[in-house]
Design a protein around this nucleic acid. Structure first.
Lengths: 149, 149
DNA sequence: GTAATTGCAAATACTTTGCCACGTA
DNA sequence: TACGTGGCAAAGTATTTGCAATTAC
């Protein structure tokens, strides 16, 4: 997909991708990108909206955030994360990185874990066995964190 | 948790668990249980409602299904499955079984896969490394199935 | 008989869309 | 200037709750 360099994602490189797609770079969009990059964890649209608003000139409407994230999702620049909550959460989706999460059932804290992906092999085997192609996966661990009773 | 026998889940054994919790067994609830057991895949509340209604005497209101599933979720008798759709899907959660899914991005078909769980070990390592306890996980594979273009 | 369960309807929450004014390139 | 973008408000969809009537035990 896309015409992307092999460099890791940064606000700048993602901005460049958007520009190449013919999209316009506005204050709101800059704010939204900053918000996504600053946060180390998946964010709801609400969270993205308010975080974005702390950046110069940015005060995106909720609908604006919604449409921007929709756009970025289509371009595989962000992806949705399943936190078992009542609304959707998103995070930057660097194609070179791997995103599995550890979520506290009690306080809701979310940790991005970096394990050597126990899934890669299974993915290939499953593709063969079930005749599916173009596989990806979503893996979340749920538990109770050290600071919760 | 609970005072459960080691036998696999059946409508009867789950009914027994509910009874022990002091809950009353009604036609609606029987219908909902039947629906969950008959279906081999995760169901939305809508689907559960209409499937339940095909059982003798059962015509549960949507709210009734909602409350019943909520209850069963608390008792760990069902769990939510992340199908990346706009509403929640649930399935029976037999503690002796393992639930990972393979979902077609194109036609939406859902397959319950039974692989030797590549996660079990990782789960223990993660528990140690991050100080979490009582770990469980949610794993879904997404791809395009053999019959889709 | 008593307390749990249910249907109905209303409230809430999140998501999605239409439209026109506005700003970027 | 031209067209993508953004705010506002309304519509759509799923979830959740209150309450009185009903039912299991």
């Amino acid at each position: 997909m896309m015409n992307r360099t092999e460099a890791a994602f940064t606000p700048e490189s993602v901005t460049e991708i958007l520009r190449r797609e013919g999209l316009r770079i506005t204050c709101n969009r800059r704010g939204i990108l900053q918000a996504l990059f600053k946060s180390g964890r998946p964010m709801s649209l609400q969270e993205i909206q308010s975080a974005a608003s702390s950046h110069e000139g940015a005060h995106p409407d909720y609908a604006t955030v919604f449409r921007m994230i929709l756009l970025m999702e289509k371009l595989h620049l962000v992806h949705k994360v399943n936190l078992q909550r009542s609304c959707s959460y998103y995070e930057i989706s660097d194609p070179r990185k791997h995103y599995d999460h550890l979520i506290c059932r009690s306080c809701g804290s979310v940790v991005l874990i970096d394990i050597p992906c126990p899934i890669g092999d299974a993915e290939k085997r499953i593709a063969q066995q079930y005749g599916f192609r173009d596989l990806s996966h979503s893996l979340e661990f749920f538990g109770v964190c050290a600071t919760c009773p």
